[in-house]
Every structure is written in structure tokens, then in C-alpha cells.
Amino acid sequence: MSGDAHHDHAHAEHHDHSKFYIKVWAALFVLFLISVFGTLTPWFFVTIIVGFGIALVKAYLVVRYFMHVDIEKPVVHYALIAGLALMVLFFAAVSPDVLNHEGSRWVNVAARAEMERREAAHAAGEGGHHEAAPAAGHEAPAAEAGH
């Protein structure tokens, strides 16, 4: 009898677990839909928030619940935090060089020309911006030669 009770208990617990994970999955699915349709809105800041913000929330849910970090030992948390910290460090130190197209004694001519060309294409084709992308590769050398 007690064996049966134990079995039932375990079964119920298992059922609860599955329910919980299905809930997390449903939340991920809803977030996914928002991230797909959110990018179709015409407002720039909304697409940014949708693109990065929802991705962060989804990553958090997956890491915490599906990768079982919530029930892991502290050392796993430390390793994760150290990895994130190193990523922030790397990005912070590299961005002044790599995200800029000019510094006090240098200019990345090709990159700047490419950005200017894209901005011009974007401004010229408001609404029809899909055509701008394929032409990019062909015109870049010409812009380079212009400098």
C-alpha cells in the first residue's frame, strides 16, 4: 500500500514537473511570437527592445529552467557570472577600436563609405529599403576608390 502511495506521489510530482516545463515552453513561444511580429512595427526603438530585450528574457528562461541552473551548486553560478563578466570586459575594451570608424589618427575609409552609402540608400528608398541590400557589395569598391 505504502508502495502504491509512493508511486502515486512520484507520478504526481513528475506530472507537476512536466506541467511546469510546458508553462515555460509556452512563455518562450509567446515571447518568440512577440519578437517576430515586434520587428514588423515601423518604430526603431520598438524593434531594438524587441530584438535584444526579448532575446535576453528568453535566454534567461532557458538557462535558468531548461539548463537547470536554478538547482545547480553555487560554483556553476560563479562560472556563469565569470563568463558574462569576461564578455562585458572584452566588449568594453574592444568597442572603442572596432565600433568606431575613425580615431585621433586613423580612419576606416571603407567602413565609413559603406555606412554612408547605406544611409543614402535608406534615405532614398524609404519604404522600399529591401532593394538596397543586394546592391551593397557591388558599389562598395567604387565608394572606396572615391576616397
Binding site: F90, A93, D97, A110, A111, E114
Partner: peptide, 17 residues
């Protein structure tokens, strides 16, 4: 590749990190 707007310095950062 800097000619196409790429960044050789990025490699140096990735490598030396």
C-alpha cells in the same frame, strides 16, 4: 578585410584576449 569594411584589429583583440 579592411578593403571591404572588415576590421583586422578585431582579430588582434580576439587573438590576444
Amino acid at each position: 578585410d579592411p578593403v571591404a569594411g572588415g576590421d583586422p584589429i578585431l582579430w588582434q583583440h580576439l587573438f590576444w584576449f
